[in-house]
Design a protein around this nucleic acid. Structure first.
Lengths: 205, 205
DNA sequence: GGCGGCATTGCGGAAGACCACAATATTGCA
DNA sequence: TGCAATATTGTGGTCTTCCGCAATGCCGCC
């Protein structure tokens, strides 16, 4: 798996070099890209780290690059750097989920701190994604009937009640329940609830 | 309980009047305040709705007002209005949880749409808060030992295992378990898990 | 037509959870 | 000192869940 890396994307070579130098002095692994297009051409789904984007660039802008990343399902944290105060742009970017917005001139240490926090946030997200994918893979193994039974288990209902609601025998519920536990790799309904809640957010109140 | 209301906070009377008129034409209940101080003096914890704040005001600024609200635990959504592009201020406010940031001159309809979404967001938050308070009140009824037993139940463990881990008899675990279910007003471990997860966010992976 | 997967069901038994009744010991407080 | 709350435990019983063994029927596919 790729190690985490801060991707510096700026059409200004001097800026790229300066940021690369700055990050290296703080032991932050980084790569530079002269344009949004070049980065998007190269970026792989399994890359970890963050992107540091100049918001105004020749060709594709920083915001367009951000939109393109999200459109392809890439969740790398993105830190914007801009030279000109532009409130609607900053607001739009943050509301779309940009990690942070840094205005020039900036304090070098502040930028590096933001980037390091972005890298850590990405590490946490990747671990959460791995867990979610595991759970979703297991959920995908369930037949339609097993899913129905599982939902009623998660609703806290007893087997007898589930049997009544699905108009099947209690033994059938037992059989499905057993299969659900086996496929989800749990040993109790509580374990099942905790596991499924990892990928569903909070259960409905 | 107070009905939801959009609080207009601006030291410029003309702005207050204009916004009040605008909101009224769209049937948005609102109140006006000539200063952040006057609003903070009056605001009550049970108020619902949102605050529409000018960011630059005589005396206490919009950001200071926002900080003061959050400092006293008030979670009303806050929409900032500003006349001057100021990226760090906008970024700082959004990262602190401001609902939105509108720059003058703005489209009337856009502002009203944002305010209506803020009001809806507050309604959702209030319902979630009510639920959380109910659950937390029940959790507060548990003795220390009951809490210990509950944690192990939520970890999916069988009574026998819990007894071994706590060095008590299985009958004692049964007794505590029964009390936990009674106080939390649930009938099964799954219901308990779902209820507690409402206030704890996602269970640990 | 046969096969495999899935859904369904029953029987019998073991394991786990729940509960009523009953009891003792500890601790903090009035 | 007495009382109430909490913690603890046992006995006996019921209810729920789990599981092995055994079986039939439906459906889609080769």
């Amino acid at each position: 798996m790729n190690p985490p890396c801060a991707h510096i994307i700026d059409d200004d070579e001097a800026i790229r070099d300066a940021l690369q130098w700055l990050f290296k002095t703080r032991d932050v692994a980084c790569a530079t890209w002269p344009s949004a297009e070049s980065f998007l051409d190269a970026v792989q789904p399994d890359w970890r780290g963050c992107a540091v984007l100049d918001i105004r660039m020749e060709g594709m802008s920083g915001l367009e690059c951000f939109d393109a990343l999200r459109a392809r399902g890439n969740q790398l944290p993105v830190v914007f750097i801009t030279g000109h105060g532009d409130v609607p742009m900053a607001v739009a970017a943050l509301k779309k989920g940009a990690f942070d917005f840094i205005e020039k001139p900036f304090n070098d240490s502040d930028l590096v701190d933001v980037v390091m926090r972005a890298l850590e946030t990405d590490a946490v997200r990747q671990r959460a994604d791995a867990t979610r994918e595991t759970v979703e893979a297991r959920l995908a193994l369930l037949t339609a009937r097993e899913q129905e039974v599982m939902e009623l288990i998660l609703a806290g209902k007893f087997n007898k009640v589930i049997a009544d609601e699905l108009n099947i025998s209690m033994r059938t519920v037992e059989a499905h329940r057993s299969k659900v536990f086996e496929k989800m790799e749990v040993r109790s309904a509580v374990e099942l609830a905790q596991l499924v809640n990892l990928v569903r957010g909070r259960p409905a109140a």
